[in-house]
Design a protein around this nucleic acid. Structure first.
Length: 296
DNA sequence: CGCCAGGCTAGCG
DNA sequence: CGCTAGCATGGC
């Protein structure tokens, strides 16, 4: 195992690893067994682990920075996965000073956007429809444990996320056994499309709205899931996924942004949230609303 | 029991 | 086009 540290000085604005990895952005990391995360105390020392591109990787927060261990040299990868080069102070300065947004920044300061590999992200969010975060996590865990490539470390077995080719050849009934419900055929169909060379990463080369439209070619992907993939995998920090929580917030606090259809409402709230990093603001707001449930 | 959860597809008018 | 019934599953 290789290991290393990334000091706090190299992470502009700092990091809250627990908030970053348990806020419903990424479903590829697992908190190591027996290590609890109390949301009202500093999450120092809690390990999170994953398998990515065949490499085992774990990371924890130490002294405001990060400590990692991996079967590969993973520092550069970690910088990408956790967007460590984002300057949170600069991003916050670009965002509006609305009360809701301000409270969210304060409550979860240090939460970063993630940049997941695109296929696992795509499948995760196809599974996310009409589903709560803990159950989405459970589904992705079962997908990996059942169909993912095993990697053995120190006598422990870990699994990567299954390849498109693997999921494409799995019978739908096997996916339903993992409690994917009506999402099972969507997952299979999308895996077939990717295996058949329709590349979700190609969206990254398109302008934002064309990229969203491009991703809806995949079965089970509408505008909301597409926005999640653009935001949490393909680097479109302006994407604002309109889920039930954000729609509720729009109705209560930004009613003039409700323009009826998804595209127009999305454009309006994007403008309201500061365009360039509107997705950052949305991610803070989503996390805040989900845990505080204010009367809106 | 009913309602809801990071919505989407298909099929209607 | 726009509209919405139906869709699996589990927790409260």
């Amino acid at each position: 195992m290789r290991c290393g540290t990334i000091p706090a000085e190299q992470i502009p604005g700092g990091i809250d690893l627990g908030a970053t990895l348990e806020s419903g952005q990424s479903y590829l990391w697992r908190r190591r067994q027996g290590e609890m995360y109390a949301s009202d105390s500093p999450p120092d020392g809690v390990w999170y682990e994953t398998v990515i591109d065949g490499a085992y990787l774990r990371v924890r927060q130490r002294n405001g920075g990060l400590e990692w261990a991996s079967t590969a040299d993973s520092e550069d990868r970690l910088r990408v996965l956790l967007r460590l080069d984002d300057d949170l102070h600069r991003i916050k300065a670009d965002s509006p000073g609305h009360p809701l947004v301000e409270r969210a920044w304060q409550a979860y300061w240090g939460m970063r956007l993630v940049q997941d590999p695109v296929f696992p992200c795509l499948i995760s969010f196809i599974c996310s429809t009409q589903m709560r975060v803990p159950r989405i996590q459970a589904m992705q865990r079962r997908l990996a444990a059942t169909f993912g490539e095993p990697v053995e470390i120190d006598g422990e077995c870990h699994h990567g996320f299954p390849d498109p080719e693997t999921l494409a050849t799995v019978p739908e009934s096997r996916l339903r056994e993992l409690s994917l419900g009506y999402r099972a055929p969507y997952v299979k169909a999308t895996a077939e499309q990717v295996a058949d060379r329709l590349d979700p990463a190609a969206a990254a080369d398109l302008p934002y709205e064309a990229a969203r439209e491009y991703l809806t070619q995949f079965t089970g992907v509408g505008p909301k899931v597409a926005d999640c993939v653009l935001l949490f995998s393909l680097g479109f920090t302006q994407a604002v996924p309109l889920d039930t929580w954000i729609k509720r917030a729009i109705a209560a606090e930004y009613p003039d942004c409700d323009r009826g259809d998804y595209g127009a409402t999305s454009a309006a709230i994007r403008e309201r949230f500061g365009s360039r990093y509107a997705g950052y603001v949305q991610t803070y707001a989503f996390h805040y609303l989900r845990h505080h449930r204010p009367d809106i």
